[in-house]
Amino acid sequence: MRLVRHPVLCNYYVTYRCNATCGFCDIWERPSPYVTPENVAENLRDLRRLGVRVIDFTGGEPLLHRQLDGLLAEAKQQGFITTVTTNGLLYPKQAERLRGLVDMLHFSLDSPIAEEHDRLRGVKCFDKVMESIAVARSLGERPDILFTVFEHNIDQIGAVYETICKPNNLVLILNPVFEYNEVATGGQFSAESLRKLTEWGRRKNVYLNDGFVQLRRDGGNHIDKPVCRAASTTLVISPENKLVLPCYHLGLQEFPIEGKLYDLYRSAEVQQLVALEGRLPQCEGCAINCYMQPSFAVEISKYWWKALPSTLKYNRIKGTWKSLL
């Protein structure tokens, strides 16, 4: 049963540029401009009309956008919940300008060992994450640690939790890696690793959407009975100010917005693509967290029930549930 029939999230790519070269991501390889504040203000008004509640200003590395604080301020003024994920390289210098503008601030950290984390990210940024944690806490911010889980680092979750998250009273978000296109991510999770993830999700101040685990046990999305609701729950806006469908990772079509996002999204041409969400040949086996999380939230299914405890837990910890009422 469908509970919500309008989009709830916007993945707003402020740039594809990045100051890291993560091997499990190919976004940084793309040439890219930066979004303009004028376009963002226009699009936010239309996103609000369409029912979107959360804006994820993403990239690339979103802090490379020199006017990110202004974009966040505009989103907050229009009543959105905001989220930003950063590798931490630029956060200490920009922290004061970003103060109070990010509801869900995530610092990426994939290992408690500096050399290993830096190798995964292709740049030395472990020390900057540690500095970012200290700076954010000094400003009264409540950042999270976003840990991208691979088969090879799943046994390091405990060290990150005990030595970094608990002493700093941070939420640990476990983000199981996903495969897409030709990007090498280290293969599938074993049954034992999936069990470990579920167990970790039950710990205090740990967020793990158990729907992600169940979906992997089920072999991902299946086009004959899709669980993905990417295009109807999530709008993707590119740095070129285009609407990308059905999702960023497929990116089959891009439509120039030209100040008419509301009408564009409701147009027959776009809605024809929306109707194909999860049913395209490329969608078979997909388990991309960015789109599955909102997909689980809008339709009652076994994934909705699996996702519910972690969703309630995180929103209670962060206090964002109040903004969703």
Rank of each mutant, 00 (worst) to 15 (best):
residue 269 E to R: 14
residue 281 P to Y: 05
residue 33 P to F: 09
residue 287 A to G: 04
residue 214 Q to E: 13
residue 230 A to N: 03
residue 208 L to V: 08
residue 111 S to R: 13
residue 193 S to W: 01
residue 103 D to S: 05
residue 53 R to L: 05
residue 203 R to C: 01
residue 144 D to S: 15
residue 140 G to F: 09
residue 249 H to D: 09
residue 305 W to T: 00
residue 126 F to S: 04
residue 213 V to F: 08
residue 100 G to L: 08
residue 224 D to K: 13
residue 34 Y to P: 00
residue 50 L to S: 07
residue 101 L to I: 07
residue 293 Q to W: 14
residue 305 W to L: 13
residue 78 Q to D: 10
residue 59 G to V: 00
residue 261 L to A: 11
residue 254 E to H: 06
residue 208 L to A: 05
residue 50 L to M: 04
residue 59 G to K: 06
residue 262 Y to G: 02
residue 289 N to F: 05
residue 169 N to G: 08
residue 110 D to V: 11
residue 22 C to S: 05
residue 146 L to Y: 11
residue 271 Q to I: 01
residue 46 D to P: 03
residue 144 D to G: 05
residue 281 P to K: 02
residue 42 E to I: 06
residue 52 V to Q: 12
residue 103 D to L: 09
residue 152 H to N: 12
residue 3 L to F: 09
residue 148 T to V: 14
residue 134 A to K: 15
residue 276 L to C: 03
residue 31 P to C: 14
residue 57 F to N: 08
residue 302 K to N: 03
residue 61 E to R: 02
residue 178 F to D: 11
residue 237 I to A: 07
residue 20 A to L: 06
residue 32 S to F: 05
residue 302 K to P: 01
residue 307 A to P: 00
residue 324 L to V: 01
residue 108 S to V: 07
residue 131 E to P: 04
residue 70 G to W: 11
residue 143 P to F: 10
residue 109 L to Q: 12
residue 292 M to A: 15
residue 231 A to E: 05
residue 307 A to N: 10
residue 129 V to T: 08
residue 211 G to K: 07
residue 187 G to S: 05
residue 136 A to T: 08
residue 266 R to Q: 15
residue 92 P to N: 14
residue 289 N to Y: 02
residue 168 N to L: 01
residue 258 E to W: 09
residue 49 R to K: 15
residue 131 E to D: 12
residue 5 R to D: 13
residue 173 I to W: 09
residue 232 S to V: 00
residue 299 E to I: 02
residue 137 R to C: 06
residue 305 W to V: 01
residue 249 H to Y: 15
residue 308 L to W: 14
residue 60 G to D: 09
residue 169 N to D: 15
residue 247 C to H: 13
residue 82 T to E: 13
residue 190 S to V: 02
residue 226 P to H: 14
residue 108 S to Q: 04
residue 162 E to S: 12
residue 75 A to I: 05
residue 67 Q to I: 01
residue 161 Y to Q: 04
residue 87 N to F: 11
residue 165 C to E: 04
residue 204 K to M: 03
residue 98 L to E: 13
residue 120 L to F: 14
residue 227 V to N: 12
residue 189 F to L: 01
residue 144 D to L: 13
residue 319 G to M: 07
residue 6 H to T: 12
residue 277 E to I: 04
residue 176 P to D: 06
residue 300 I to G: 10
